[in-house]
Design a binder for these strands. Structure first.
Lengths: 189, 189, 189, 189
DNA sequence: CATGAATGAGGCTTCATTCAT
DNA sequence: CATGAATGAAGCCTCATTCAT
């Protein structure tokens, strides 16, 4: 039971602070203080604050997708898991006090030159999109064009649900998104 | 043809910078420089940076809602205007390079104590919601419960469309939201 | 008898420290501490450390050339003043403990991108060269080509005298330069 | 054909960086990175950055004097080699982009306590001076006093030539020094 | 003998705000 | 009502060195 490594301690503190306080609100000094790490030690593991953010988002992606897949595993693969994924959002966002999506939140107020961060965000949403497509493909009801359109629509619902629940500090937008999703999946066009 | 007032010049510069560069990326010094205003003059009109942001968001709300109503005015009030509102989003977001929603963008990375800003954001989304409700009510097809649920769903679509178009730097999410919206409005539940 | 302004205090401290301790050895913190000025106050008057150095060198140029002209004024304009200028070097360098030339010293170990500093140094040496040319022209003994060559040679002697006196911590190199200069001026070629 | 030793690799990198980028501009990290050496390995061979500089200057002295002697070897020992030595300066400084004298450059901006470095610099210039004296002695035209004075003057010319060519980024100061040197050697005083 | 991790001190610069005129 | 000067706190990052393995 030894002490976590410097890298781990930095990641823990940075993840918590970046997510709950915000990227710009979180200073390097705060991170190293909470991680109980010397500043230069931190910079031996991460070249810059931006790099910490990238690592944070990558870790967050793994964690978030993992939890999502676990959560929906009780349902049959396909539409059912997609519908169930909104229940995941409800659980998650209630737990974090509707703090919203770590990926959305970080790109909205970013120094103009920090492209690496934006890239991970796009990657995360693309991966989520891939999973949705998988679920739709398993269903077998749709051709490729239909799948793509549905996929886009569902992703919009997810993004909107997370964002609006953050603004309103409530979970009703997530349920609304779920209802909308059910409607979209029921009515072939 | 006199020079715009200090307040107006500050608002112009701050609005532009807050929206396109981001609230945290924009410093007071940059605002006064671009507004060509002395620092203390600015602080005579606005108690703090937060206050400037509040004024910016209020102005932006008026402007945005005004443009929305103008844009959809060519359509019959009701579902048609709602559908048309997504075309507004397409026009607007293309014009601003998919910079997203000024209201969404500002709340995601904010000092913990700046509640006044959050309040205006909530107000803005509530007003948008009111307009949607108006349009649905005019239709006459829905009871109150149905109206509220549809309203929530449509708002989620709008939020998601704006956010995802910002992430993907493309307008397809807006069209996806529009398609989804049409589906929701067509299929009574 | 009011307190000197912030700018003056910064200049005084920076000049003293840059010259006697060295540009790289002198930190912003040391400057503001000795100038008794808040850091941000300093940055209101100087955009960067480089800019302070530029101002320091410009001021130093005026001071140094002024003192030189004053010192040699007792001699007749022409060769005599040139010879006398080496006595000026002796006086000056003894006074500053053979700390060398502020202009030479700053360019030898400079971040690659600080061109503004280099420019002032070149300007300073060019102005000194102009003065030498003036003195040679007054003499009337030389044609343009001869003047230019002598000028270059004398400037080399001055630079070498200052540098070698710094290395050896002694004034004999200055006297050597003076002797050499006399020889050059005596023997037309 | 084995890999150069740690010490050699450090020396190679440090020499290059100290000379071309500057002592203060070069960090330990950059040295070990370019030398492909672990930090602690380096500190096993050199007690401190200052020690690396001392070794660098010692090596540089051997190299520089060696090349000088080789270069002038085509001439007869005496005045001729002295004159020829300025051609060496021209060749060398053109090759290194007028980066100046590694010894001059390092002492102008040094932490106050690093005396070991200063000592090597003085040693280097003294050795150069010894060589000039040798050349003058071989000539047989001068008494001891005359030799010493000429020696000082020639050294001043060399120092000035190197420094001014660095400032002006041109080789004309070296030719000027050569002309002056010829004049000094021709005219007994 | 070699190493990567860890460190305290300090580097330069910018922040939003207030003060004195 | 307008202003430029002044400020303390904090921003991100790099320094030369030492430690534990």
């Amino acid at each position: 039971m030894s002490k976590p490594s410097v890298k781990e301690r930095v990641m823990e503190a940075a993840s918590r602070l970046f997510y709950f306080a915000g990227y710009n609100q979180t200073g390097i000094n705060q991170i190293i203080e909470e991680a109980k790490v010397a500043k230069a030690s931190m910079y031996q593991h991460f070249r810059s604050k931006e790099d910490i953010a990238v690592a944070y988002l990558q870790e967050r992606h793994e964690m978030w997708m993992g939890k999502l897949l676990d959560f929906v595993a009780s349902e049959k693969k396909g539409k059912a898991q997609i519908i169930k994924s909104f229940d995941y959002l409800v659980d998650w966002l209630n737990e974090v006090g509707f703090r919203g999506c770590g990926f959305q939140n970080i790109i909205t107020d970013l120094p103009k030159d920090q492209h690496k961060i934006k890239d991970v965000v796009v990657y995360h949403k693309d991966e989520l999109s891939k999973w949705i497509d998988e679920m739709l493909e398993i269903e077998g009801d749709y051709n490729k064009k239909q799948r793509q359109q549905l996929n886009e629509e569902i992703l919009v619902l997810i993004e909107g649900a997370i964002m609006l629940s953050q603004i309103k500090n409530a979970d009703y937008p997530i349920y609304a998104a779920q209802r909308a999703c059910e409607c979209l999946l029921k009515n072939t066009r």
